[in-house]
Design a protein around this nucleic acid. Structure first.
Lengths: 240, 240
DNA sequence: CGAAACTTTGAGACCCTTCAATTACCGTGG
DNA sequence: CCACGGTAATTGAAGGGTCTCAAAGTTTCG
């Protein structure tokens, strides 16, 4: 399942002594449809979660960073695919390890549930983007999303200038499948953000944020780290 | 939070003696941004969950039916809006009732978590639809989704002919905001499904399914009640 | 029955996609 | 270290799908 971070969720200690595995970019950790026997933790690198349709279409659901938990499912099989974006180190445990860890410990259990809710909120955000935002807006959100994830991952303060330079290790197709566009449109939309003076492209896998306030304005996002990141909006009857 | 059904989730007994409230169509049960003090249960009718953007855009996240739980959130405030679609009866309890109910009872707690996972899977489905499917496909999925929810709600067997006639109590705008289109496009796409012989419109708030196999084919959905409703798809590297 | 709201339909515009060609990037081998 | 080849990214031109604006038709409800 999608994204899930909170540095130091207590239940993550089940991975402390867990066996590790290294993945090269493109390596698949979880194939959709496989029995959901294990749970994972990203130690280092970046992985991508996605859902496939029968005809090969793919919706990328999120990117996972160090400390993120992987393997959320209620069903007996995974219904999503997880693959490495960069060289990645993963810790893995049988599902029963986690179940036992959560069983007796209400604190761990609360932390786990809180994580599940965070994942859910991320999915709601994604649905809002895919359903309501334009191409440029989606890319603006994507840039801010990545910045936010790097910030969480590194513990950098929000105003750190380092966060203005972003690595984009995934391909344009990966980005496209995440934001619900085609790769050419992703290129063009990045180009438009650049023309507008919001970002600057530095090679195809790196960009600089030039105007973060402008990006936030375009994205309609107040702050990616606050719980309710969309303002309430007008409350009048939407049923016209 | 979105959808969540499983007839007879044990923890729903917290609503057994709970105060009830009646809502007329359009009445708002939860305003996004309010303190998340209560949890709810749909007793009768239909409500709609949505998320608003600052400029008034709205993404409908799902429709809730009798026995559905309402009020999932990890944050101190609701980040979604819930309003009645039809005349609706709602039971409500303070959050602490639910917390206490879940505290000592692993079975109830498991059921609750399972529900949260179902909600998450629904959101993943929604994201896939919004990001990857065409207008016609989204409408086909929507019709099958409604049929599925009615089926769960009534306990009707899958092949019951009653399920071929569907009520659509929500407005075209509501549908549009759910499937990420404009209301005119919803109308036109329904028209195209009708021309294709898949459905038949019977007034603006009722339709008949003429070719359910064709709808499923178009939607790319095997079966809405099975856990993994999208076939796995091809497994080759999506990174071209 | 009549008015208001909602739905459907039409025409034109716009945004994103498709298809194609060029350019940039990157790993390999000389 | 540079040349080379293959892959990925960008850019261009044309097409299609959805949106916008507008009007006609239908449903709902007082």
């Amino acid at each position: 399942m999608p994204v899930a971070t909170s540095p130091g969720d207590v239940f993550l200690d089940v991975f402390d002594e867990a066996p590790r595995r290294e993945l090269a970019p493109g390596d698949v950790l979880i194939h959709a449809g496989e029995p959901a026997t294990d749970v994972f933790n990203v130690i280092d690198g970046m992985v991508m979660i996605s859902r496939f349709g029968r005809d090969g279409r793919r919706q990328v659901l999120g990117f996972l960073f160090p400390d993120d938990f992987v393997g959320l499912t209620a069903t007996e099989t995974y219904f999503f695919t997880v693959e490495a974006v960069t060289p990645t180190v993963i810790a893995s445990r049988g599902r029963e390890f986690l179940d036992q860890r959560l069983a007796g410990d209400p604190v761990a259990e609360q932390a786990f549930i809180a994580m599940v809710f965070r994942v859910m909120e991320n999915l709601v955000d994604l649905a809002y983007s895919l359903g309501q935002r334009t191409a440029r807006e989606r890319l603006a959100v994507f840039v801010l999303y990545l910045r936010h994830r790097y910030r969480l991952s590194t513990g950098t303060p929000d105003d750190d200038r380092q966060l203005l330079t972003l690595e984009l290790p995934m391909s344009r197709t990966d980005i496209a499948d995440f934001v619900g566009l085609k790769k050419e449109t992703v290129s063009r939309s990045f180009g438009q953000l650049e023309s507008a003076g919001l970002i600057e492209r530095a090679g195809s896998h790196r960009l600089r944020i030039l105007d973060i306030a402008g990006l936030r304005e375009l994205a309609g996002v107040v702050d990616f780290s606050s719980p309710a990141r969309l303002a309430p909006g007008r409350r009048n009857g939407a049923r016209q």
